[in-house]
Design a binder for these strands. Structure first.
Lengths: 217, 217
DNA sequence: GAATTTATGATAGCATGCATGTATTCATGT
DNA sequence: ACATGAATACATGCATGCTATCATAAATTC
């Protein structure tokens, strides 16, 4: 499989993206220790950018840093996941509510594009790409709210939840994944400026996503 | 005035706290450039911990980092403040709602203690201390929700808003600052497990705080 | 033999020097 | 006078060596 070429401006950024990649592709396991030197050597950079990437991941809850002791990959409990989704629901519902009143034509088109790409990635069973575009869908809505702070927070919580998806290794039934249909419904509601409807659909969508995570895999 | 001794474990932590201190005490001005070397020399440490502190402040929206160019202190517009408070309202209302159902006796006592300290700091006109304890009040409620992720997010948004207080230089009328009375009312509602009431009071409290920021100073 | 102390190894935290990229200034030409 | 471009100063990004701290294991004492 040909990977999308990773774009990055700095080494720290590269390490950050690479670590996320390794998390998504399960090369790293929950709770695993992440010594700076190991990562530095493996990625051919020095410890400095590694430290920076680890702290960024820590701010997203994906990595746990114990002062003077080291970093390890998070191993979220079911409880932590519930908590995360509770926050995500709050943020995304307000996000979609505001977006419903002020989303631009351009962003509506971006949403539709995202849905198309999403279908493609899903059919190709490219989980990493699918997650990335899924993230994009939600990101576009957050941006469309016009509230920059809200968008930042949504960004953070997306980083958390999409990694959790992998930690909990859900079974995606190719015959029955309602997620994309739900996205389409949300996009439609936004297009029609149906605020309440969009919020309800989003809430339903997130509840379902969370439920999916907890299905036996 | 005798300052509370700052406790810190690492140099990076020291720089972080010291920078926040300088922001709160208006030694730094919105939009001001923050070159790593200057800060490093001034604080008697190397650039490394300074970089770390700056990035942490950036994650709290207090500092803007432009890659390869440098960091500067944020200069939030009124719009950004509105946005921040909108998010804060969401997070704190859900926070207090959950806390109302499960706050412990111990945390109720901590709330009361915070209110007492707060009154003292206000009477002494110690703005920095007052802000710190004010922050504590909200932090305790967030922790009492039992949702760690939520508490993290509240922590982040508290860091933002309390610096904004200084950026916008509000006039605190010593005769008429309803904030502490509002805190007392919220604590009372929590004690009585009056969920809806606590949420309404919190919303009112935040609306008022935001309004205060926008009074002519 | 258990507990406490001591030694040893390993890792994060910090300082510093070098490389790279950016902003400013000044010269040059139109 | 203004625009353009080169040169210079400056700040960040990264690498590397050193130091402080923590965890583990060995040793000594009771």
């Amino acid at each position: 499989m040909i990977m999308e070429p990773r774009l990055y401006t700095t080494s720290a950024d590269y390490v950050y993206q690479e670590l996320r990649h390794q998390i998504i592709t399960k090369q790293l396991k929950p709770g695993q220790r992440l010594p700076e030197v190991n990562i530095a050597v493996q990625m051919g950079v020095s410890r400095t950018p590694v430290r920076e990437a680890l702290r960024r991941l820590a701010s997203e809850g994906l990595v746990l840093i114990i002062p003077n002791s080291g970093a390890r990959l998070a191993s979220p409990t079911r409880r932590e996941m519930e908590d995360t989704y509770a926050v995500r629901e709050q943020l995304e519902c307000i996000s979609v509510a505001i977006a419903a009143t002020r989303i631009s034509e351009r962003n509506l088109r971006r949403l539709e594009d995202a849905i198309l790409e999403e279908e493609k990635a899903f059919e190709e069973k490219n989980l990493e790409l699918y997650l990335e575009i899924n993230e994009n869908f939600h990101r576009i809505i957050a941006e469309a709210s016009g509230n920059r702070v809200l968008a930042d927070f949504v960004e953070n919580i997306l980083a958390r939840t999409n990694a959790y998806v992998v930690f909990y290794d859900p079974f995606y039934d190719i015959e029955d994944n309602p997620s994309i249909a739900q996205h389409r419904a949300i996009a439609q509601a936004l297009k029609e400026r149906e605020r309440e409807k969009a919020v309800d659909l989003m809430r339903e969508h997130l509840k379902h996503s969370f439920y999916d995570l907890n299905k036996p895999s």
